[in-house]
Amino acid sequence: MAETLLKVEDLNVEYVLREYKVNAVRNVSFYINEGECIALVGESGSGKSTVAMAVMGLLPPYAKISAKKITFDGKDILNADERLMTEIRGKDVTVIFQDPISYLNPIISVGEQIFEALMAHNPKISSNEAHAQAIELLKKVRIADPERVLKMYPFQLSGGMAQRVFIAMAISAKPKLLIADEPTTALDLTIQSQILKLLNNLRKEYNLSIILITHDLSLTSYLADRIYVMYNGQVVEEDSVEGIFSNPIHPYTKTLILSSQAIYLGEVKRLREKMATITEKVENSYTIKGCDFIRKCSNYSLECEKEPPLIECNGLKKVRCWRI
């Protein structure tokens, strides 16, 4: 079996703002092996991006982070100093985002930005060498006309091209882990499948591990090996992709799967009967006690007012629900 690349145990992140605190991530544990792809799935605000940022050490200063353990490649990165983090961040772990254009510098040409990325890892690189490598990278991400694209500025790129350029920069240092935070959410269907394919090819070629963050479960069936379903800052169910789809147990996972399947099959009208047990209930303003899903769950009983632990089932499956 492959080596474990990243291991996170009991991660908690709290954003401490002047007026209030947000418990964005609570007791999240996960791991990823070399060459594996895991997916963090959940609705917006469920804490997926926060997990990614915490691993990257890129949380804003007012975020309080605590964990039992975070190790990357055997190194403790929870208590790592900034120097080690910068090194790991630039070299071994990279991120791509939903809106790459806003992460590219608008006044510097695509070429310059790729050269900069190359130079950061190899300061002695000659400009000819950098140019050749940049072209090579753009070809890798399947940009048809790399010479021309090198001279372009970010605003001249379409969303799909910008994402490719961003991926090119991300893989320039041959990282071990790529975190893809909603990489296709802003893209069209045909471009989405191109990017997913590209990620899959890169993964095979570099033995890259990928953390795919998405709110759309349908994306995971192509790329991911294992899935962590998140709800309100917690992992509520984890399993292999097949396990999640064929045997969803947590009511939230069920809603997710039923919704995406109903949309895919064009049977949204029949969804309501299927979801009879997991209806969305009226949102009240009382504070939640016990299970986070209690307000939306009609399967609940008295025991649900105690917070459910992540219960291990057979195989890889773990579920945070009392009534399994």
């Binding site: 269907l189 499948s193 997913l196 192509y222 399947q261 895919y264």
Partner: peptide, 16 residues
């Protein structure tokens, strides 16, 4: 190019 929400389907393996 619509990805099917079903890892068992053939399409989800090839993703045309």
């Amino acid at each position: 190019s619509i990805p099917p929400p079903d890892p068992k389907s053939a399409k989800s393996k090839t993703l045309p």
